[in-house]
Simulated assay, not measured.
Amino acid sequence: MAEHTPTHPVGGTPPGFLEPLELLYEEAGQPRFRLPPALATAYGGDLGFTLPCVYANFVASIDGVVALGPEYPSSGSAISGRKSADRFVMGLLRACADAVLIGAGTLRATPRHRWTPDHVCPQAAPDFAELRRSLRRAAEPELVVVTASGDVPTEHPALQSGALVASTVDGARRLDGRLPAACTVLTAGEGSALRMADVLAALHAHGHTAVLTEGGPRLIGHLLGEGLLDELFLTTSPVLAGRTDTSRPGLIAGLALLPNRPAWTDLISARRQDSYLFLRYRLRTPHAHDGLQAAP
């Protein structure tokens, strides 16, 4: 049923790029976007999604830490060791997406970041652009920031460049007149409650059916709690982060699953480079957003 034999792409290493990922395992019959040759070589094969799809991407230490705490900005880079292969996969997943969905906490924790493919892997920018053209995507994925309270750092360069800010009625009222002109407020809830199903329905109405989320853990908890996450890409970095009294969250925060509500997954792809593992899982839970269609 599945392909277990490791395979290697032909064509060698793209000049100025990185060593190709080694394909260890891939479930047969995966959808394929026909990546440009340089991307397919670097990734160790092709990549694709069955749409609509909400997929997450995280890097974690061996002991399950995904963030070092609010006193350590951009801690994902520390966990990954700024591994070029991890940054490439991050860029590739962004290049496949209509929209990149983050929480306000992630925006605050990465004060200079831009959620575009070329920001994390500029060497592959021409190939990312070619992929987006072939998929009939916009030049860059739209950044979507979720904030129930309306508390966002309005000076952040990613907001200055333009973003969709999803909030409640109360949050939208607090944001009125504070956001850069390039931003649009999306009201997706009433009072203090914000349902991710409403956010995704609005994104689908904008034509965004390939949605990548880069967290953080509380946003993933909300998506899982509503049965809205389809796939998880997880880079396991060969580092031990440790914990003391400082909060160092794992992949999910604000949601208890075991023992009464396990969220089982199936491994559909495994790649490696050096001591890093690049894993792809499919959630077994029902797809609550399958019935959502883009507005005509």
Rank of each mutant, 00 (worst) to 15 (best):
L131E: 00
P141N: 06
R108A: 09
A67H: 15
A109I: 08
L107T: 04
A138N: 06
S75N: 12
R136L: 12
I79R: 01
V120D: 13
L175A: 08
H113I: 14
V59I: 15
S149N: 07
G171V: 04
L39W: 01
C96Q: 09
F49G: 01
D151F: 05
N57G: 11
Y55S: 11
P122R: 03
D118E: 15
E71S: 15
N57I: 10
V145I: 08
T168G: 08
I62F: 13
V89F: 08
R137T: 04
A124M: 05
A139D: 14
R136V: 13
L135H: 01
G44V: 01
S80C: 05
R132M: 00
A129V: 06
P157T: 09
L92R: 02
W115I: 05
S77H: 10
V144A: 11
S74L: 06
V144W: 04
R112G: 13
P153C: 06
G76D: 13
F88H: 04
A99N: 14
A60W: 11
T50D: 15
R178K: 13
C121A: 15
D86P: 10
P73F: 00
L159D: 00
C121Q: 08
Y72Q: 13
L68I: 11
M90Y: 04
G103F: 10
G150T: 03
N57E: 07
A99H: 06
A163I: 03
T50N: 14
P122I: 07
T116C: 03
S161E: 13
Y72F: 13
S134Q: 12
A95R: 00
A163F: 05
G48Y: 03
V59K: 05
A42G: 02
V66N: 03
S61M: 07
L92M: 07
P153K: 01
D151M: 09
P70E: 15
L92Q: 00
G103N: 08
G48F: 01
Y55C: 09
